[in-house]
Computed example of a mutant assay.
Amino acid sequence: MARKNAAVRREEILAATVEEIESSGLRTLRVSNVAARLGLSASLVIYHFETKEALVNEAFDFAGRQDIDHARQLAGGTAAPVDGSGDATARAASARGEQSALQQLRDVVGWYLPSGSSRSWKIWIDAWSAGLFDESVKATYAALVSEWKTILVGLMDGAIAAGECSAPEGGVDACATRILAFLDGLAIQVMVNSDAVDPELLTEWVDNFLTRELR
């Protein structure tokens, strides 16, 4: 059987690490459990990543960039919008390639939410906790947030230029920060205190928030 090249093997290990964190959480993560998912030895995993800490940090980055890549497709109109996002007119316009920047923004926001995204919020809640004590994880998270903000800012700039909305208070960068903070707070409530948030109202709350920010 031909040996897999290092890049392919590393990606498989990262995917397995993400699955393990989703399943059991970061506190109980063991390199041996990640290896067992792939039928490998723990020493081979360490060979590729040197330490458990490096493996965890790269796994966070791996998971985050998959979602950012899809968000960029939504922002560029090259991916289907999140199921249920937008009204019928907007979805029809999207199918004709006429989707507005403002609707693309709403699609990206819908993808970010736990109800619309494939991202594991269990992983990101773990990442926030780990980032309090690990500078590498903190830097990785900051870089990913910066990319999310870049996507949102670009869409807001496009919507403003097209006359779809007014410039938000404090500018688009500050608005992008507020949007992400609002979404993160809702996500935590959905994941750890679901009784406080009616999932059916989640989209309505977010839509109202965006409407207030981008009049």
Rank of each mutant, 00 (worst) to 15 (best):
D134H: 07
G86A: 06
R119W: 10
A88N: 10
V137M: 11
A71R: 04
D61S: 10
P114Y: 06
L113G: 05
I46F: 13
T150Y: 09
V145W: 03
R106Q: 11
G77A: 04
L102P: 06
A35D: 05
L55G: 00
A92M: 13
V34W: 10
A59P: 01
A35Y: 10
G86R: 07
Q99I: 08
Q104T: 04
G110V: 00
G131Y: 08
K52M: 07
A139I: 03
F60A: 00
G131D: 01
W111G: 03
S120A: 13
Y47T: 07
V145Y: 01
G39I: 12
V109I: 08
D107F: 09
G64P: 08
P81W: 05
Y141A: 14
V109S: 01
T78A: 03
S94K: 09
S146G: 15
K52R: 14
T140V: 14
A95W: 09
H48R: 04
A127I: 02
W128M: 10
A142Q: 15
G131Q: 05
G39R: 11
L38Y: 12
G76Y: 01
G97M: 03
E98G: 03
I125S: 05
D67K: 00
G131W: 08
L132A: 13
W124L: 00
R91M: 05
V145E: 12
E53P: 01
E147R: 14
A42Y: 02
V108W: 05
L144G: 09
S115G: 14
W128I: 04
S94H: 15
F60V: 12
S100D: 08
R119S: 14
L74C: 02
A95V: 13
V145M: 07
A127N: 10
W148R: 15
G154I: 07
A88S: 12
V82N: 02
A59Q: 04
T89H: 12
D61G: 05
A59W: 06
Q103D: 14
F49K: 09
T78S: 12
G76A: 02
L132T: 14
A101Y: 10
F62N: 01
R119G: 12
A35V: 11
W128G: 08
P114T: 04
L74R: 06
L102M: 11
G110L: 02
F62Q: 03
A130G: 00
E50C: 00
E135S: 13
P114E: 09
T140C: 13
F62E: 02
I151E: 08
Y47Q: 13
G131S: 09
V145S: 02
V82F: 00
L55V: 04
A71N: 02
I123T: 12
V137T: 15
R106E: 11
V137Y: 02
K149V: 08
L44W: 01
D107Y: 10
V45Y: 06
K149T: 11
T51C: 01
A143S: 15
G39C: 11
A54H: 09
A95R: 15
A90Q: 13
A35L: 11
V108K: 07
L105N: 05
L113C: 11
L144M: 15
A42E: 15
Q104D: 07
I151K: 01
G154Q: 09
E135R: 15
A143W: 02
P81Q: 07
I151L: 06
I68L: 14
L155S: 06
T150S: 15
L105M: 09
K52C: 03
A101R: 06
E53V: 01
L38P: 08
R91D: 07
E135I: 13
S146Q: 12
L40W: 12
S100M: 07
R96V: 04
A71V: 01
